[in-house]
Design a binder for these strands. Structure first.
Lengths: 186, 186
DNA sequence: TGTACATCAGTGAACGCGCGTTCACTGATGTAC
DNA sequence: TGTACATCAGTGAACGCGCGTTCACTGATGTAC
């Protein structure tokens, strides 16, 4: 049956949100189209009224996540400062809630295997570097150094959360997070 | 038909090697049992003469990779020093040959989702931290600081290669690798 | 304003496919006598 | 040393399953007259 356009748009948004959450929790291949549609309260059929393919959804979900994640970054840094943001990012809570966390830690490996998603992922990484460059306390003067420092910080952040999430020893994970926090703070 | 025991052992080893390569290239879920057996020159049936399940192979392949990877680390550091090792690790070549590279950058996300593999992964991370602690040039005196520095370095290494592998802009990837190299060198 | 019809997001069965795993069977090698 | 038999890693067809995707159909909403 036919539905009012605002309802259709709301459903589209809801599919993106559920996909963003499930993809970050279990990876692109770990979530089926049917599961995403079920999470929005629909059957799997009308998925193709909203997206051309699962691949297209992956790309659009990543772009949507990027926008929302960067908005969160800007807001938190503006309200509480970069040190507070780093504490949130390098926290046990972030490690344990991949579905609501950083798309880079959750989907970097999947992205390397899914060409359709690499553009959105790359744009997100560039945005993250630009933001860190602007707000990170700077140890050296030159602009080029600031950019390199932002990249090093980003690599350490992503690596620390990725490792903490994979090891089955929470104490080790927490130690890695703490090492990254202190390393980036000074 | 029956085969001599040394031939069986050689096939077992070969399955582990092919699995180690393919898993690192495409992830645990991205490689089928049949594909691994085909790569060893056999049909998929006898797989279960060698391993109880695909899950058991994943765990054993990870443990095997860990042993071989750490032996490579020890050899390269002994012959050429830690700086040369970091140059190899943080190189375009490493980024482009996941199947022959670091198991942490290739399989961290998959490991978080596969309980059977987490033990072997965690042991590998601990081994990597211990090794880096021993050979990394130390900025501070205390033992605890050395361990934290090793963890920060490991996080930056893993994060840098993971990001460089996922972005579709090789120049950006190379820039991230260079930033990590220079950041860890000083 | 009331009626007839086009629209299109929904339903749910069906498709072909590749997966992990099982199993009846084969036949060269190793062992017992 | 020669023969009979047990062993077991191999073969390849088959299994049940879940996947992404398609499609004939439904029926409330929006539009034309």
């Amino acid at each position: 049956m036919r539905y009012p356009p605002e309802e259709t748009a709301a459903k589209h948004r809801r599919i993106l949100e559920e996909a963003g959450r499930l993809f970050r929790e279990r990876g692109f291949a770990g979530v089926s189209v049917g599961e995403i549609m079920k999470a929005t309260g629909l059957t799997h059929g009308p998925f193709y009224n909203h997206f051309a393919s699962k691949e297209a959804l992956m790309a659009e979900a990543l772009a949507d996540l990027s926008t929302r994640t960067h908005a969160d970054f800007d807001r938190i840094v503006a309200e509480q400062g970069i040190a507070a943001y780093l504490d949130l990012y390098l926290s046990r809570r972030h490690v344990d809630s991949a579905g609501a966390g950083c798309l880079m830690t959750a989907l970097a490996a999947d992205t390397a295997k899914e060409p359709a998603t690499r553009g959105a992922f790359t744009a997100h990484v560039k945005g993250a570097i630009d933001r860190l460059m602007r707000v990170l306390p700077r140890r050296r003067r030159a602009e080029a150094d600031a950019r390199a420092e932002a990249m090093l910080a980003l690599a350490a952040m992503v690596g620390a959360v990725t490792l903490a999430r994979a090891v089955d020893d929470p104490a080790l994970g927490d130690e890695i997070l703490a090492a990254a926090r202190h390393g980036l703070a000074d």
